[in-house]
Structure formats: C-alpha cells, structure tokens
Simulated scan of single mutants.
Amino acid sequence: MMMKIKMLIMMLLTTSLTACSLDDDDPGKWKPKTTTMEVTIEPEYIFSSTFWATSVLAMEAVDDTGKRMDAFSVNEINGFTYEEGYRYKLLLNATTTDPNIVDCPSHTYALKKILSKEYVGIRTEGCHEVTMDVQRVLMQTPDEHSSAGYYFLCGRAIDGSETLDMGLNEIIGSDFESFRTFNETTQQFNTYKCRMRLSITPSDRPIYRNHNYRIRLLELLSSEELPNDSIVIATTDEEYLSKY
C-alpha cells in the first residue's frame, strides 16, 4: 500500500513539474523583462543594414577596448538625442520584446542616465571636397531578374576624378527621397539625378560593409528629373555580390 502511495506522489510531482515547464514556455504567459546596461557611443555616425539591404544611419556602440559591439539606429534609444562629435557613456534600460511578434528586435532601449558626454569632434584627416552627380542605380543579377536586384547610389565626380557606390542613405545630411519622390498628381514616382557638393573623409575602419569613408552633404547644387533609374547588369555573381 505504501509503495502505491509513493508511486502516486511521484506521478503527481512529475505531472506538476511538466505543467510548470509548459507554462514557462507558453507564449501566452510571456512577460517583458528589463535589465540595465552600460554602453559607450562613439562620436561619428556609421551605417547599419536592414532586412532589405538598405543602409540606415546609426550610432556606433563600443566596448571598453573600443571594439564595435553594436549599432543603434538614430531613434532606437528612447529619450536620447545624439549629437555627432560627442562620445557618450550611457546607462540604458533594455526590455525584452514579445517573441511572438515576427521581424521584431529582441529588445527595446530607453535612456536611464547619461553617465558622461565628452566633445571630441569628428575626423578631418584626409578629408577632401568633390562635386558629384549622384543618382539611383538598379543592380540586376547576371540573368537580369529585376526581382532579385537591389538599388544603390552611384556618384561620379564632374571632373572625372572619382566614382563612388553608396547605400541609399549613405550621404549624411541627405536621404533616398532626394533621388526618388512620389508624385501625388500622376500617382507615379519621379526619379532625380542630383549634383551635390560633398566632403569625403577616410575612416579608421569600415562604417558600412567595406566602405572606409564618410560622405557628408555640404550643398545640393541642382536636381534634374530623369525618365527612370539607371540599370546595371552584373556580368558575374561575384560582381553582383560585391556591391550588395
């Protein structure tokens, strides 16, 4: 009799533990958790990639050795306004997000305290100015499948001295809307080639993929409407991937 009672108790305990385990994993019982974290934000913008391979302006977070550990988009830290040229030490609240939401970041961030703010300026070594004609370019795969293509910006110096390929938002002070806007009257997109005076400064490490320079808009000189985007067909898969 005692043996049966012991076995019954063991079965009840096992059932209870299993139920608890299931409850912990039950998406309906998820609750956000908040922890604090300390980060150092570097004084110059970098760029981060999105799911659609589009570059977005971002703030660079580094560890104690200066190694890049993360990138925050400019509006990602709630309550914090970034000023380029300053190095910040921040205390953040990091809150987990609902795992049931698809394509959602794992955490949201809010400023708890600015621990320090030191002006160090931006890099000027090797900086030069150039006037470029810049427009959107559609890069297609060697088999010319436009659905598999992607857009980037191509800038050509008007004196022929240099050419640069850039992400759609990679000119600091400008954005992709300078090159393509929606016309409410025609219900179509208008595409533009922009003549821009730019400053180009080498960076000490890549700020976006293999790009070792920062480009800033100094002045928009003119804007010319184009019939459509320029299209480039990659000759090899390697060429296609090199700009992606």
Rank of each mutant, 00 (worst) to 15 (best):
M3Y: 04
K6G: 00
S16Q: 03
A19R: 04
D24L: 08
D24G: 00
D26W: 01
D26A: 10
G28M: 01
W30H: 04
W30S: 08
P32R: 00
K33C: 05
K33A: 11
E38F: 01
T40V: 06
I41H: 00
P43V: 00
I46F: 01
T50E: 09
T50A: 02
A53H: 08
T54S: 10
S55R: 00
V56F: 06
V56M: 11
V56W: 08
A58V: 00
M59W: 04
V62M: 04
V62I: 12
V62R: 03
A71I: 03
S73Y: 06
S73K: 07
S73Q: 09
V74T: 07
E76C: 08
N78R: 12
N78C: 09
Y82Q: 13
E84F: 05
G85K: 03
Y88L: 04
K89L: 10
L92F: 10
T95D: 09
T96F: 04
T97P: 06
D98G: 06
N100E: 13
C104A: 12
S106V: 12
S106N: 14
S106K: 14
H107R: 09
L111W: 02
K112P: 01
L115W: 01
K117D: 14
V120M: 02
G126S: 11
C127T: 11
C127G: 05
E129V: 07
V130W: 10
V134I: 15
V134G: 02
Q135G: 12
M139H: 07
P142N: 06
D143F: 08
D143A: 11
E144G: 01
Y150W: 12
Y150N: 13
C154N: 08
G155R: 00
G155Y: 03
I158N: 10
D159S: 07
D159K: 07
G160L: 10
S161T: 13
E162Y: 02
D165P: 01
M166Q: 05
M166T: 06
G167D: 08
G167E: 04
G173H: 03
G173N: 03
D175G: 09
D175Q: 05
E177W: 06
S178Q: 05
T186I: 12
T191L: 07
Y192G: 05
Y192Q: 05
C194L: 10
R195F: 13
M196L: 15
I200W: 09
S203C: 15
D204H: 13
R205F: 13
I207V: 12
I207H: 09
Y208C: 13
Y208W: 14
N210R: 13
N212P: 09
N212T: 15
Y213V: 12
Y213S: 15
Y213H: 15
Y213D: 14
R214K: 15
I215F: 07
R216H: 11
R216T: 12
L220H: 13
L221M: 14
L226C: 14
D229P: 00
D229E: 13
D229N: 14
S230N: 12
V232E: 08
A234L: 05
T236P: 03
D237Y: 08
Y240F: 13
Y240K: 09
L241G: 06
L241A: 14
Y244T: 01
